[in-house]
Each structure stands twice: as structure tokens, then as C-alpha cells.
Design a protein around this nucleic acid. Sequence first.
RNA 1: GCCCGGGUGGUGGAACCGGUAGACACAAGGGACUUAAAAUCCCUCGGGUUAUCCCGUGCGGGUUCGACUCCCGCCCCGGGCACCA
Length: 825
Amino acid sequence: MEERYDFKTIEEKWRRRWQEADLYASHEEPGREKKYVLVMFPYPSGPAHIGHVANYNLGDVLARYLRRKGVNVLHPMGWDGFGLPAENAAIRSGVHPARYTWDNIALLKEGLQRLGYSYDWDRELATCAPDYYRWTQWLFLRFYEKGLAYKALARANWCPSCRTVLANEQVINGHCERCETLVVQKALSQWFLRITAYAERLLADMDRLPGWPEGVLTMQRNWIGRSEGCEVVFHVKETGQEMPIFTTRPDTLWGVTFFLLAPEHPLADELTRGTPYEKDLQTFRERLRGVSDIDRIAMEAEKDGIFTGAHAVNPVNGEEVPIWTANFVLMEYGTGAVMAVPAHDQRDFEFARKYGLPIRVVIQPPGGELDQEEMTEAYVEPGSMVNSARFDGTGSEAGKLEAVPDYLEERGWGRRTVNYRLRDWLISRQRYWGVPIPIVNCEKCGTVAVPDSDLPVLLPEGVRFEFEGPSPLERSDEFRYTTCPGCGGPAERETDTMDTFVDSSWYYIRYASPNDDREAFDPEAVRYWLPVDQYIGGIEHAIMHLLYSRFFTKVLMDLGLVEFDEPFTNLLCQGMVVMGGAKMSKSKGNIITPDQFFEAYGADTLRLFILFLGPPEADKEWSESGIDGAHRFLHRVWRLVDRYLSILTLKTQPVLEDSEMLKRLAFLTHSTIKKVSEDIERFAFNTAIAAIMEYTNGLYKAIEDSPDAFNTFEGHDALRSLVLLLAPFAPFITEELWEELGGEFSVHQQPWPEYDAELARAERITMVVQVNGKVRERIEVDSGIPSEEMERVALDSARIRKLLEGKDVSKVIVVPGKLVNIVIR
RNA sequence: GCCCGGGUGGUGGAACCGGUAGACACAAGGGACUUAAAAUCCCUCGGGUUAUCCCGUGCGGGUUCGACUCCCGCCCCGGGCACCA
């Protein structure tokens, strides 16, 4: 064999051979065990970067390992093709978004192919291709038919100078990223998907996701934000209008001293219209224009509000309290109105103190005597109800859960209800580079769905991209003006496109039959491959993408289109590769590409190095120091195989009597197989590689000590195992070495090595002896040593005996096979 | 601000269920080989006036025979917060 490890030639050679052999094609084989291994597809923002490599390494190692275990593996790749950056590029440099995107896809694909990932490229898909988004539109129409897609007014970021809608990302400190004009909130009629209808199921079904990280489930639970409470109907004194509020604390109803509306609440306009307060409201809204919701509801944010001049009537006691608007009340949560109980809610308390509004204590802490004048903060803990008419003396918990809700329901003043923090999913984007919403607006027929047979509604190509003004679709007469599918009269197309999260909410299903042009997916293929057994992706997707995908899956099941209601059985959230403390991304301008490493080190080294950097879940600060180590290791493996092969050609007689060495070899081999297999199963790829390095070091020692011992079954087994174990991590070099060892093509189709538990067990172990928890002695003993024997050996050791002189042994703790701790006084 | 993670040598990390802190590497230093360099191989490598001792896993407490690991309170860093994906 070649003396030097020439990675360039090797990698080229095998990349071609694998392609010719179509090594990673996947097919349904009913009855055979399958695993669907999926890594979140990338947004093609440019060439591959180190963050991609870190991602896709994980899925590839797992897919390769599972195939070798005899499993039928689906491991596809595709492109999340729609998105804002393509459109920004079009505006800035005149490149058409399609061109920009497809060019980037080509670049990214080339990078991934050089890394030797084992994708079934026949299943490649792109969400921006008409043969994909046709089915996104088709699915939208199914949602629409079910009443799960609807139009409503919603606020959007609006730059008055550019006369265009801005994404949150384009709003910097409340100002337009381009022209620095103060961004305002403008109400637009927009499309929503009714995810709130699935809130309860999305919440409850998380109990059936034991394969998900607890942190992600917690984030999703908090995001859905279920709270039980009551809806209570207040009235406007002046007009008699009903103003329902949601509260989780009905037990504090008697402590209401004012009433709050969200500043955007239409009722605030109505109540102040034509009054001296009308101007105050406008000034107040002006003040809040550039302030995000996050800053408005921050606990530490200054409370701000104005009086509307009107009053609310509290149903439980008939009291009339002033109606204010406040910055911390959001239109999007609950009913956009709240009852204010300053004595028992911190924000209400701060508001009351600031504006001199009354505070009334209605919950007394156990044994305490709260005084509304003296209080410095709200009392939010349970206690005993006071100043609450017939409920005086009732425990607040009982009052909250039973007594008061019962009372409200009896009187018809309110009812028990459940409120969610989760809001419906706004999918409208006033942009070009997305899936057109397949709806036509007709003056006669109203909102009309585009018939399935007319799909896809294609994006027009000859459009102009401008810095300001309405979106290219709105400006495109060709796109916009059409005929009504219902009456055949003139009509206008919906010009909004969909949020790209819609595209990525079902792509994992499309992979089952990506080239199907008759349906969104083939039920047979879906039945075999889905759900995804192992989903892998960045922690930054913990909530939105994963929640939207779960929602989609449930709707598809209800539509009878799929037979499962959770898309991802197991989830691995890996950390991010960060640089300079921020995640690596093109928009941050801090990307490192693999290209620069291919020349000097090769793909195997880069794969190995990045996997060796740390555990998948941890964030990794990028630094290339250490890549030499990975490269050196591959050279070492190469030379070891070379050395071994030269021993074989010497045709030495195997030294069968050197049984100690053979036993040592067998132990090394089998304990390493065990360790590497277990580590891969728990995604500890970094320690799996460390184990292979230790193994290599051990084999080097052995081959120095007794080269002849390698011309034996144990020797052959050791070298073959080394290559077989390393193959999922470094696919190119191992394929070459496998060939050198006389193995059959391909190493990636060889069964994963099995270990013999007996051979993998160490014969001698180091037992630790502690005195009062401090290590005082280490003694080598047989691994099967009984506990009583461990204790005896420990107490017998000279050093321990000396330490125990004149002391009382009060206790001896023995951890079998590990340590003995002697407790003395 | 709220929710979710994380913090271990000069560096990346290991320690899997409460039981030997620092595996495996990188960097650094010393040595061998070489005319020389590269490559390779060997040795040292948390700190402490150099060891059978003491200290040490962000900081302060606690539980335990024993804590990087569990509990309480802080500090710092990262992610998400609904139009970046």
C-alpha cells in the first residue's frame, strides 16, 4: 500500500465509486425494520459553513451506524428555499431571488457532498420548487376547508418612509434597519392558521414524547401557557357595553379598584371619542409606537397609562371603577382587558402607586395584618379572603378554585374558562419569495379558494424588486388580476405569501415520496417511513418550528392523510457553533467554511475534528486549534495498517504460546467495540472517537512489543475492527484501508462488529480506599472481588492501618467493584 | 424582563445513576532521531517553597460517609420571545 496517507486521491476516488454504486439509495421494504434519521434541512444562505458540518455530521454518523446494524435507513437532504435574505439580495443587488437561491443551493450541496454524507440524493427536495410548493398550497386549502385558515386584522411593523412591512429582524431598536425611520404598528388584514384550536392536544401529547429533551418540552409548555381561571363580564357604566376579562384570581374580585384596556383596544377609541381624553390616548399611543411588546410587559419596565374618562362596573359589588389603558396590557393575550387588583398583583400595584389609584386588601396572609397604606409590594401568596362580602374568611385557594367561580356561574356574571398564551399563527407575509396563498378575492363571490386542479399558483418571474413600497406581487398585474374560479368574472389574487415555517412544517413527510406528482405524499411510503425516528437540529428551533410541525401533523391526521399525530419520536437538540459569542450565520458575517480545510486536511479530518470538539448538545466556540490532532490520528491509523500488512508479508509463524498478548489484544478489541457502540447510541461521538484513539495507541504498543502476535486471529480481528469502528466517522480513509485489508466493498455495508462481553471485561481493577471520603490508597484486585473481600483488603493495607491507629472505625461503606470508604472519628 | 440551557487545567473537553476530578486531544516545555528541517518517537504538563500533605469543577451556603453531579441564594455567558431561519 501507499506509504503516505494521500487523502486527496482517496476522497476523490471513493466519492466517485459510491456515486456509481448508488450506495445510499433507500427503498421501502415492508416488514423490515426501518429508521428515519433526519437533520433539519438548511436555509441556503451561501456555501456550507462549520455550523452545517457540526449538524450534518451527527445524522450521518447515526445513519451509517444504523445501516451497519442491519436497519433500513432513510436519510434524506433538501433545502428550505424560501426566505427573506433572497429577497433582500434582490433588492440590494438586483439578483433574482430564484437565481440567488438556486446558486446557493448548488454551493451548499457541493460542500455537503465533499464531506461524504450518506444522503439518498434521489430524494432531494426544495421548498421553493413549484413541484413542492404546489403541495404546500394544496395543504393550505385543506386547512381552509376545515376552517383552520382564516383572515383577520393584525398588527405588522410598518415603515412609513419605505411604505413597506418589516420583519422583526429588520427593526433595530424600534427603527427601520434601512432608513432609520421610527417603525409603527399598522393593522393589516392577514391570514392565520388556527393553532389555538390544537393548544390542548399540543400540550397533552407532550406526555407521549419521552424521547424529547425535557428542556424543550418545558419551553413548549410555557409557550402554550395554559392557565385556568374565569371569564368575568364587567360593563361600561356610561354605555352599558360588556367588557369580558380573563382572570386566574377570581378570589380577588372584591379588590378591583380600576380597570385596564390594552392601548390598541378599539373600545379605548370608542370611550374617548369626542372627549377631552381622546388626545391623551393619541399621545400615549405615540409614546408606545417604537416599543416592542417584550419591553412593554417587562416586569421592570416603567408602568405607563392614561385615564379614558369612562368607568367600569364590577358585577360582584356594583362598584364603579375608572377605566385606564396601560402599556403592560396586550391586545393579543386574553381579551385585551384586565381587572386591576393592586393589592395582589405587582404590576397593578406599581401602576396604582404611580397614578395615586386606591389599593384595597382582600387577601390577608396567615397571621399577618396587611395595611394598604404601608404595603411596599403586592401580596400574591395565598391567604384568607377579607372585604369580600359573603366570602370573608374563605381561604383564597378555595375561593379561587371553587367558591367564587361557582358564585359567578350561578349569577351569570362569569364562567370557568381556560386561557392560553399561545396565539394563532400569522402566516401572511407581504413579500415575494414565498408560497403564494392560493386564494382569489372576487367582488361577487368574496374569498374563493383556487381549485386544486389550478395548482400551483406560480410566482411570476418578471417582477421588479424595489427598496420601498408594496411587494412585487402586489405590483404585478400579471399575477394579481385573474378571473374568479367561482363566477368567471374579474377578480384579484391574494398577494400575500406564506411564512416559511409553513414549508418546513411538512417537508419531513414529503421525503417519503419526494417525486410524487399526483399527491402531496404517497400513503404507502408514509406508512412505512414515518414518523421520523430521530430528528436532529439546533436548539434555536425548540419552540416554533417544532411546535408548528407538531400542529401540522395533528391536522393531517384529523384530515385522514397520515396515521400518526406526533412527527418526531426522538429529538436531539445540538448546540450551536458560535464565533465571537454569537451563532455562526451569514447574516452575522461570522462564517467559517469547510473549503479552506479540504485542501490541507481533507473531509475525514474535518468531520473527525468537529465531532471530537465536544458533545452534540453543547455550544462550541469555534477554534481550529486541534485540527492537527485529528489529522495526525488518521495518519497514525494509516501507518498502523501499513505496519500490520508488512508483518503479514513476512509470513512469520504466529506465536501461539504468547497467550497473554493475545488475551490483551482481544480485551482491547472487545472493550473498544463495547465502548464505541454504547457511545454512539447515546450520541457521545466525542468519547467514541477518544476510545478509538486509545485503542489505536494500545495497538501501537502491542505491535511494538510483539509484532508476531498480530499474525493471528486476534491480530486480524484487531485491525479489521479498528477500520470497521472508525468507518462512520471517517468514511473515506476507512474505505481505502478496508480495501487494503482485503475486505469486500463496501466497508459501509459491513455488519457492525459485535463484542464478546466476557472478552470485554477487565480482569484486574483498581480499587480505591478512602478514609473519611478522602482517597488514601489504591489497590489492584481481581474484578470479580466480593464486597467483604474488598473491605478486608482495604483494612489490611499497611497505609490504611497506619491511618487508623488509635481511631474508632464508625462505619465502612463498600461500593462493589469501585471503592471502600472508612469513616473514623 | 420572562422561559430554557450552560460555566471543570493555558485550550477543546472526560468523569454515563452521588463514589478515583482532569480520560482523549490541542498548545507549551524538555529530550531522541537528523548535516538541518519536517515527520515520527519518548518524557513533563491544575495550583501550592515539590509531598504518604493541603487546596481546587463560576461565587456563597446546605444535604451526605462521600458533591463537578442533589437543594437554596447569587454572578456571568448563550438560545428563544411569535415577520431571521
